[in-house]
Structures are given as C-alpha cells and as structure tokens.
Amino acid sequence: MVDDPKKESRLLKSAEEFLQIFRKGEEFTKSILKENERLRFRIAELEEALKQNSNSQRIKNYEERIAVLEKELDSLKKRFQEVEKENRDFAVRFVEIEEENNNLANLYVASYQLHSTLEYDEVLKILIEIIINLIGAEKFSILLVDEKTGDLVPVATNGISIDEIPRIEVGKGIIGRVAKEGESHFPETISHTDEPDPTSPLVCIPLKIKDCTIGVIAIYSFLLQKRAFSSIDYELFNLLAGHAATAIFSSKLYTQSERKLSTIKGFIELLTEKHN
C-alpha cells in the first residue's frame, strides 16, 4: 500500500503506460507472426511453381532429345539395313568368286595336264582322267578322224568296250553331225541309262584346231551322283574342244616323227655299217 496519493497516482500512470507499451508489443508480435505466415505460404507457393516449371522444362528437353535420338535411330536402322544388304551382296559375290576361282583352278589343272606330255597314249590317258574326274562321266569314247577314210574311229574308251563303238561317217548321226558342224551337243538335263546307245551319246564334244575337227568325245553316261551340268562343265567342254585337240594332235605328230626318226636312224646305222 502506498501512503502518498501522489505517488500512487504516478505509479498507476506508469503501470498504465507499461500496459499500453506491452499491448502495442503484443499487437506488433501478432502482426509479425501473421506476416511471417503469409511469407512462408508465399515461399511454398513459389517453390511449387518453380518445381512445376522445372519439371515441364525437363520433360520438354527430354522430348526434344527423344525426337533427336529417334531420328538418329531411324537413320542408323536405315544404314544398318544398307550395310546388311551390302554384306549379303558381298557374301554372294564372295561365293561366286570362290566358285570362279575353283573353276579356273580346275581348268588350269586340266590344261596343264593335257600339255604336260608329248606321248600320245599318255595324252589320251590324261584326257580320260579329266573326263572322269572333272566332268564326272562314266561311259565315254574318244573318236578321231581317220586321215585315210575320213571316218571317226574310236581310239580310247572308258566303261564301255572299244569294240562296241562303231566307225562313224562324218555327218551321220549325232557324233557325225558334231564332227561335221564343230558344235557341241548336250542335253538340258542328265538322264541315267544302264545300256547306252554307242551311236547316240548324251554329250558330244568336237575336238577342234581352229575350224578343223580332228575328232570327238562322246559321253554315253555320267556317274550316278552327277545329276546336272554346272557352269564348269560347259567351260570344260570348251576347254577340251580346243586344248585336248591340240594336245592329241601334237602328241600324234611327235609320236609319228619319233617313229620316223628312229626308222631313219636305224637306216643310217645300217648304211654306215655296210659302208664300214
């Protein structure tokens, strides 16, 4: 209790002032809190907006990137298809070249062997080997034009007796016609017969030196496993037509000249002995 009324009044006034200051402080705090809440809400709003904005931009970027990549993928797919096609073409070409290479090797061997000797019998033997091993013929004969009669006479056979092959007049039948015209005779397909007709071969190839036919190769049957003609067969027919003819002709001339030489030598020796 204050005894002095003046003092009491002063105290009351001070208290009143303090209370007012306190109330103002309270109001200020409340308004700050409210402002704080508003700002926090605003921040949240902005953050959300930013997030939204950032996601849509990212999606847009991704979409653009996907479009570019899809374009690249299409272009790569196209290139891949082109390369694949090229690859297939190269593979086909490789097989063709391999085949060509094999054919050339076969032709080289055939040609090399045919010209490897000047012995007539040896040439005929090699020719028979080529016809069996490279063409795949089973029964065949080689007929040469007889210089005296002009007829085709069998000189070698395989799989068939030489006695079964008749002399053939040039121009008559398949064999005679091939010898006359100088053009090969061959069917589209190969047929297998047990008893072939010696005058009617399946394949007949002329043996030609330039335009002159010196004989023919008559094939009556092929090995069972040979079912069709391949490109190498036709090449071999052409090769045989030329190379076999020259090989036979030159070996025949060589053998004849050797025989004549030996006769002359014997004659000279005889004369020398008589002279001595």
Binding site: A105, V109, A110, Q113, I126, E129, N133
Partner: peptide, 12 residues
C-alpha cells in the same frame, strides 16, 4: 594315282 586329281586336290 591320277596325277590330274592329285594336282587338282593339291591346288584346292
């Protein structure tokens, strides 16, 4: 035995 075949196979 055939020289032709021998050469052909050797070539291959």
């Amino acid at each position: 035995d055939s020289p032709t075949m021998r050469q052909l196979i050797s070539f291959a």
